[in-house]
Design a protein around this nucleic acid. Sequence first.
DNA 1: TATAAACTCCCTGTAAACAGGGTGCTTTTA
DNA 2: TAAAAGCACCCTGTTTACAGGGAGTTTATA
Lengths: 214, 214
Amino acid sequence: MKTYKLIIADDHKMFLDGLLSILEHKEDYEIILTANNGKNVAKYLDINSDEDINLVITDVNMPELNGVELNKHIKAKHPHVKTLVVSMLHDALTVQTLTKDNVDGYVPKNAEKEELLTAIETILKGEKYFSQSIKDVYLKGMFSNEQTLMESISKREKEVLKLIAEEFTTQEIADQLFLSKHTIESYRKNLISKLEVRNLAGLTKYAIKLGLLD
Amino acid sequence: MKTYKLIIADDHKMFLDGLLSILEHKEDYEIILTANNGKNVAKYLDINSDEDINLVITDVNMPELNGVELNKHIKAKHPHVKTLVVSMLHDALTVQTLTKDNVDGYVPKNAEKEELLTAIETILKGEKYFSQSIKDVYLKGMFSNEQTLMESISKREKEVLKLIAEEFTTQEIADQLFLSKHTIESYRKNLISKLEVRNLAGLTKYAIKLGLLD
DNA sequence: TATAAACTCCCTGTAAACAGGGTGCTTTTA
DNA sequence: TAAAAGCACCCTGTTTACAGGGAGTTTATA
């Protein structure tokens, strides 16, 4: 019987313990590493790229390097390593980003442990596994136009939006970004129009929705 | 050796499984009930009040009845039952509400399982147990003036704040509340001053923080 | 290499927000 | 029963935001 090598990343130690206790008396899984952030996992993979890790199980919200970024890194640098996200239910955008980055599966933390085991097995067989609730979120996102809006906001616009939501005035933002006051006014105007809001209050809410603030 | 009767409430089944696997091979703990919301726990306690449950371990974020409300209910109706919150790190206000409602302990989910066991033992001995990080949050809340600010906002001010965050202009708010435009301007001014923010963006963030929006 | 998208900047107005005062009335509570 | 807090309103300014245009340059991409 083949033994699979696993890495688990989650900053909730108790949850990690739970996962471990579920997996450790399965003889076909060997936990090579546990980490409380994504960076350590990325580092480990970069250094020990000869060791054939089969699967990385990761949370989304983690310090240093979050699950979305970790998945992206893995798929770019170590495409043979499978990835399974086990996390709270996230917004459609997160799920979409993950799938676009070729994640192999997503199971919410409120799933039964049996489902987790099924997901792991399925992924190790080379297939994808997404819980129904994740598929729902994804589809909901596809047919609402929210993420279409989100995608239509450029990097620079997001930068300005963030500063607006941080209560800086147009002039202050211009100074910070070494741009003309007129430019920032244009950005604000476009954002108000694109996001279909009326004023700073609406922009601020969107900035929060987009996760631009801490 | 005495056996203690425990109830665990958490809507993340996998976390629940983890907790169970940590506790179930401890012979002095008997898990009477697990639930994925607070309501079922409250119901169980209300009906089986003769059965002497020693401790309820609960998450904060749960459907139906959250951990804060559950704790309040338990301490009001079943004061002999100890309560331990195991949850993500929460804001100072949540921690303060819990302590005000006489919760017996709070351990964050990223704690080691040893700390959880220590917390349980300590509480069952009749003492309180709060992780250092929780104490930090609490103290930070005490010495920051955030919740003092929250309390200093009157009902009318909250009403105006909500409408501001909903992107209505001063005139529109005045019309809705049948007040003078000047009055609304005064409220906005006072809110900006009280909440120590600079503009609509800051007010909007506070409205969200205070839970005035959906 | 076109063509679109993003980025940058500018103009003219008007409307709204922001700053810093003040008044009087009512309700709560120490 | 005073004092304090909340409520509603008013005034004079200044600053900023908002509305609705235009236009050139760079960058990515089909």
